[in-house]
Amino acid sequence: MKIVAITFDLDNTLWDVEPALLRAEQAQREWLLQHRPGSIEAFDHETLWEFKKSLWKRHPELIHHVSNMRIRMLYELQRAAGYDEAEARAGATKAFAAFLAERHRVELYEEALEILQLLARDYRLGALTNGNADIYKTDAGEYFDFAFLAEEIGASKPAPDIFHAAIALTGLEPGQIVHVGDNPDHDIVGAQSVGMRTVWINPRGLPWTEDAPAPDGEVHNLKQLPRVIAGLALGNRASGDTGQSY
């Protein structure tokens, strides 16, 4: 079956997310320190993490809505510090905006733009993410035809919903779409469950240990991806190490 579209996970597939998240958390903290004194000073990394976990337990309806969950956390921090509801809601919105601005200042992997430009000549490209990064606010946005966030869909990978959304939008058969991602469960097993073909981004060369079929292809970096996609188009299961079937 001819490959027509490629969907990508974003965080740790097209960029290393950790530096952007660290900057985003710091920007959020600095906003609170300046504009909502008393709301964040008592929290370090560990205690804030515990606060987040307690929030997840109290608001399970937000588990797939990472942006709303963060806004709720910022609101509750300010309410606990004595700010009234209006101040806390306004502050949560502004602190989140400070977070999100840095969240989108991602540094794509060195080879990413070149590879995306190459693939976009022959395939429709889409983004499917559990995070709250907007591909169109990054340097890679011009190469993408569509994007879905789990918080828009209401379910996170590996649930099939976001993959079904891509299938419905493109009007393609699942086997005409290849999903590329770094997470064995969320990306590979999730995409397999709806019949998509899959390529695993595996930079550390880890063994496949999931209780599911191995991905159709595997690469250690994005430079290997066009060759592996070409192999899949010929009906091969391919490794980026050699470009050979296996």
Rank of each mutant, 00 (worst) to 15 (best):
M1V: 15
K2D: 15
A5F: 08
L14A: 09
D16H: 15
P19H: 15
P19F: 12
A24C: 08
E25G: 11
R29A: 14
L32I: 08
H35E: 15
H35I: 04
S39G: 03
F51W: 07
S54F: 14
L55N: 12
L55C: 06
K57D: 15
E61R: 02
L62H: 04
L74H: 05
Y75F: 14
Y75H: 14
E76W: 05
A80H: 12
G82A: 08
E85R: 15
A86L: 13
R89K: 14
A90P: 00
A90H: 13
T93D: 15
F96R: 10
E102P: 01
H104W: 06
R105D: 05
E107F: 07
L108N: 08
E110S: 14
A112R: 09
E114M: 11
L116F: 13
R121S: 12
G126Y: 01
L128M: 10
T129M: 02
A133W: 11
D134Y: 11
D134P: 08
Y136A: 06
K137H: 07
G141Q: 09
E142N: 00
F146P: 02
F146S: 02
L149K: 12
A150K: 00
A150Q: 00
E152W: 05
S156W: 00
K157G: 01
K157S: 03
P158L: 05
F163I: 03
H164M: 06
I167W: 07
A168M: 05
L169N: 02
G171R: 07
G175F: 04
Q176C: 13
V180C: 10
G181W: 05
D182I: 09
P184W: 01
D185Q: 10
G190L: 03
V194M: 05
N202R: 03
P203R: 09
R204Q: 13
P207M: 05
T209R: 12
P213Y: 00
P213F: 01
A214V: 10
A214T: 09
E218C: 12
Q224V: 06
L225N: 07
L234D: 12
G235V: 01
G235A: 11
N236D: 15
R237A: 06
A238G: 03
T242H: 09
S245F: 11
S245R: 11
Y246I: 08
